[in-house]
Each structure stands twice: as structure tokens, then as C-alpha cells.
Design a binder for these strands. Structure first.
Length: 507
RNA sequence: GGUCCGUUCGUCUAACGGUUAGGACGCCAGGUUUUCAUCCUGGUAAUAGGGGUUCGAUUCCCCUACGGACUACCA
């Protein structure tokens, strides 16, 4: 196989959604698997759709995800520039090459004229197509005399360059995922290749750039499948068939409920992020949530995404980036769209969170504490981590599960109070406080033994004592084991909380 | 409307002519547990429909239905 070179080529028209991240991921995995190169090319040939910040967003998202590029708009490379607007000058000559070999032509029809034609056709329940059937009745270099064309061009008349689709020809696209896809050329239309603003359209730019950048495989979304025959035709018209990349059209990511492809709105509607990072729309100010800010680990995010449309063929589901690279294969990419499942995303995150070493968890929790303005010693933070990491799905859960280690409860759950707070409770708690006072070994195990033997010796109910203790320590019926809580809190704090509860709840 | 692509438990998917159609998430039940989780065990649940081909179809072919993408001087 020739050197593998693949690209991710987004358009900077807004935030990249998770479908785009998955496309980038599969390209990345493919490149690494085959020891090839992976590059980032920005396809910004539509100046009217430019959104400030979108390009940076794309770069930052992929960086966070752990998807790395070898070449690209942000790091340069031997085929720079990697932003199509910076390559503007070079497309014209390629368009001219097609004009010269008569596989493309100038068209002078105005957008208004074409719009009128479309309306007209529509009123007759037909669809207007600028193509073999209609092109001879329109204003272009096929119908105008050579002189007229020359005059128009010299007069600076607006024009576009359109590809000349053959009349009746079967065009075959070999797709790595779908096999042979063939289409009759008369169904294609004479797509614009070069716009009147001097920019190429996607069709021209992607073919020219893929050729110039020696792209070996085009791995992109299924929405491109219908125009793939046009791209194949362009390679032929340019005489680049021998260097044509192989194509793989990825199935779509579908919304979790109902049908249709996942859209920006679904996230807000169903309460999960569709974007890797939080995005604030520069125009409307509208904010869309991101995986990073919602508390997902990039490893979990990537693992989940990788399995949406691909699987290794084994029953292993937890896969690191290195394992994904090792196992990835285009043959195992499915053909049908995948509905995104937010529940499974959480499950992945829970798994990765629990597997993290305590030091890492401490780092995550430490950041939350700083944000909350809570001052806690590293030792305290670290000792809390093993107790809570298996109880958290998302990073913010770390706080939900541990706040009482850092700040005493200010209220007590009424239901629990009703159930366990009896007239004799203060006396009982005082005896436990005495017990703690005499206790030197404050390890969880020692405390557990001490409390349990106290319960046993006094013939008390396990549930009663433990739940009452829990209530006064954390304010309700939640949290890790009571002995573990006391161990982390320490003698002074535990006793103080007992006193406070007695004072607050009284008799 | 036209073209193209697709269709296995609710969801992600395995099985590339012969399996009691497997796994995971979710859900339900049981166990562990001082609470809530975690964890462990078990259960629930699928080949869209109809025709072929074949000794035998989830698997190959056709039709139907359903879904999706595309159909711009957008990508």
C-alpha cells in the first residue's frame, strides 16, 4: 500500500459536533494504524458562512479528545497552507485546465435567473437541473460564441465555472464500507466548481487539495456519498485517476429518540452535550454544553465515540486510544446509522473515573474545591478520593459525593431525623463521642471494630447506631461507610459534629 | 418528487449459509452492605414484511414497507 495520508477537513461554520469528532477519530485511528499521516485542513471556501472562533474551537476540541495531527493549519507541514482561503490563488488554474480540455465551461446565468427557472420548473412539478438536458438553453460558453464569451469575460461579467457532466455514463465509486456504488451520470448536474467570487466550491477544492496533498484515503461522512461520483469524475477529467484516493463513507450519528441525524437542538432538548466543548454562539450568545464542561473524561468520550459505528469484533468494550489504534479497521465499520445513547456515555465515564488513580481524582476534586473557594489540605483531598470515585459518573459528582468532608452539614434530612432521632439519642451519641475520645487508632478498620463492638456490647441495633451517626456526620442518609467518614474527618471534627447535632436537634 | 444509502433485543452491536441468535448499556429480580451507590449473580428482550435461491437462511437475490442522506455560486 502506498503511504497512508488522510485528512480531516471541517468547515469552520460553527462548533464541531460529536459526529465530526468521530469522523476525525476514525481518520486518526486509520492513519496511526497504518503508520501514515493525519492532517487538518480547513475548508472555508464559503466566506459568507465564516464564524469567528470556529477554527480554534475545532482545534481545541480535537486536542482535548487526544486526537493529534501530523500536519495542519495550526502546525504547518510540507503541503502548507492548509486553509483553503489561503490557497485561493491556486484553484483558478485547475478550473482553467478543465475549461481547456472542455470538461468544464463558463456560465453567465445570474442567481436570479436560475432561481426563476427553478420556480418555473417547480410549478410544473419538475425539478430544474443545470445539466445535459438544460445547459444548451442557458447562457454559457457552450451556447455563446467564442467571441461573445471573450467579450463578457473582458467586460468583467460575473461568471461561474461548471463541470460538464457526460450524457449517459455509469459512474462507479468503490467505497471501502459500502462496496460498489454506481450512478448514471445523467442524474448528476453540472455543479459549480468555481464561484463568481473567485473561490472554488467544495467539489473542486477538495479534489484539488486531496490530490496536491497526496491524500490516500478519503474517510468522511455519508452525506458526501451522493457527490462522490462527481469527485470521481473530476479525478478523471484532471487525469489523476491513478492517484485517486480510496473512499470510505461513514454512517451517520442519529439522535437518541425518534429518527434523523443528531443535531445541535437534541442536546438541549434531551439534556446531554452534542459538542465536545462548551460553545457560545458569537452572534446569538446562545450557549451549548460540552462534554468537557459536563465532566466527561476525554478517554471515556473517545471510547464511547469509537464504538458508535465500529467494533473490534471481540467482546472487549473498554479500549484505550492505543488499543483502538491497534484494533481499528475500516472493514469493521458498520453501514447503518447509530443512535447516540447518553446513558452508555455515562457508563463509560463512570468506568474511567473509577479506574483513575487517587492522585488524579484528587487533582479533579481539588479544582472543584478551588472553584468553590474551599480551602482543603492535599492530604484530606487525597484521603477522600478512594471513598468516592466509584460513586461518581461525572466529575461534578465527585463534589456531590464528598462535600461533607470539607464543610459540616448545616441541616439534617427530616425524614432521617424522624426515623432515628429518639429522646435517648443524645445520650447514645455522647457515649460514642467518649468512645472516639479514647480511640487512638483512627484507621477505618480500627474504628469499624470499635464501633461494632460497642454496638454488640451494649446490645444495640446496628442500623440504629450507624444511621444516627451518619445523620449527625453528613446530615442525611448518604455517603461512604460511617467508619471511613469518621476516619477521614478525624477525632476533633467527628466530635464537633456530634455536639453540633445534639445542640441543633436537641431532645 | 428524483437519486443514492441503510434495516438483528428499547439502544450500541456479534454471528461474513448450519449457533439454544452471543455480548454491552438500560430495565427488573436476588446477593453483598450501617445509607446511597459500586460490585456480583440471574432475568427481560431482536433478525421489518413478503417472495425466491439452497438440504439449510440473520447471512445471497428480488419486491414492499420504513428510515436516512443528497438534490445551492453550503460544506
Amino acid at each position: 500500500m502506498k503511504e497512508v495520508r488522510v485528512r480531516f477537513a471541517p468547515s469552520p461554520t460553527g462548533p464541531l459536533h460529536i459526529g465530526g469528532v468521530r469522523t476525525a477519530l476514525y481518520n486518526y485511528l486509520f492513519a496511526r494504524k497504518h503508520h501514515g499521516k493525519f492532517l487538518l485542513r480547513i475548508e472555508d471556501t464559503d466566506q459568507t458562512r465564516f464564524v469567528p472562533g470556529a477554527e480554534n474551537y475545532i482545534i481545541e476540541s480535537l486536542q482535548w479528545s487526544g486526537i493529534q495531527f501530523d500536519e495542519g493549519v495550526h502546525i504547518g507541514g510540507p503541503y502548507a497552507p492548509y486553509r483553503q482561503s489561503d490557497r485561493k490563488e491556486m484553484y483558478h488554474q485547475y478550473a482553467m485546465q478543465l475549461i481547456n480540455n472542455e470538461t468544464a465551461y463558463y456560465a453567465f446565468d445570474t442567481p436570479e435567473e436560475l432561481e426563476a427557472l427553478r420556480k418555473d420548473f417547480e410549478s410544473r412539478k419538475e425539478t430544474f437541473q443545470y445539466g445535459p438536458q438544460t445547459r444548451m438553453g442557458l447562457r454559457n460558453s457552450l451556447t455563446l460564441s467564442e467571441n461573445d464569451v471573450k467579450t463578457l469575460l473582458e467586460a468583467g461579467e460575473h461568471y461561474v465555472i461548471r463541470v460538464r457532466i457526460p450524457d449517459h455514463e455509469t459512474i462507479v465509486v468503490q467505497d471501502l464500507i459500502r462496496g460498489l456504488v454506481s450512478v448514471d451520470s445523467h442524474l448528476l448536474d453540472d455543479k459549480v466548481l468555481y464561484k463568481s467570487d473567485g473561490m472554488p466550491t467544495y467539489h473542486l477544492a477538495n479534489v484539488v487539495d486531496d490530490y496536491l496533498m497526496k491524500i490516500s484515503h478519503v474517510i468522511r461522512g455519508e452525506e458526501w456519498l451522493p457527490s462522490a461520483p462527481l469527485h470521481v469524475l473530476l479525478y478523471r477529467y484532471f487525469g489523476w485517476e491513478a492517484d485517486m484516493p480510496e473512499f470510505a463513507h461513514l454512517p451517520l450519528l442519529l439522535k437518541p429518540d425518534g429518527n434523523g441525524k443528531l443535531s445541535k437542538r437534541d442536546g438541549d432538548r434531551l439534556g446531554f452535550p452534542v459538542f465536545p466543548l462548551r460553545w457560545t454562539d458569537p452572534k446569538s450568545g446562545e450557549v451549548s454544553s460540552g462534554y468537557r464542561e459536563s465532566g466527561y473524561l476525554p478517554e471515556a468520550f473517545i471510547n464511547m465515540l469509537a464504538l458508535l459505528g465500529w467494533n473490534p469484533g471481540t467482546e472487549q468494550e473498554i479500549l484505550s486510544m492505543d488499543e483502538l489504534i491497534e484494533l481499528f479497521s475500516i472493514d469493521r465499520v458498520g453501514k447503518s446509522g447509530s443512535k447516540f445513547d447518553p446513558e452508555k456515555a455515562k457508563w463509560f465515564n463512570h468506568h474511567y473515573l473509577s479506574a483513575l488513580p487517587d492522585e488524579k481524582i484528587a487533582g479533579l476534586l481539588g479544582k472543584i474545591l478551588i472553584d468553590k473557594g474551599i480551602d482543603a489540605t492535599p492530604v484530606l483531598i487525597l484521603s477522600v478520593c478512594p471513598l468516592i470515585k466509584e460513586r461518581a459518573n461525572l466529575i461534578p459528582d465527585l463534589w456531590e459525593q464528598s462535600w461533607f468532608f470539607f464543610t459540616p452539614p448545616v441541616s439534617y434530612d427530616e425524614k432521617v431525623v424522624q426515623k432515628f432521632w429518639k429522646p435517648e439519642t443524645p445520650a447514645l451519641l455522647n457515649r460514642i463521642s467518649d468512645l472516639l475520645k479514647k480511640q487512638d487508632d483512627f484507621s477505618t478498620d480500627a474504628l469499624d471494630i470499635a464501633i461494632k463492638s460497642f454496638i454488640h456490647d451494649n446490645e444495640l441495633g446496628m442500623g440504629l447506631v450507624m444511621n444516627t451517626l451518619r445523620l449527625v456526620l453528613v446530615g442525611g442518609s448518604f455517603g461512604p461507610g460511617v467508619a471511613a467518614i469518621i476516619s477521614v474527618l478525624g477525632k476533633k471534627e467527628a466530635q464537633s459534629r456530634i455536639e453540633k447535632a445534639i445542640a441543633y436537634l436537641g431532645n
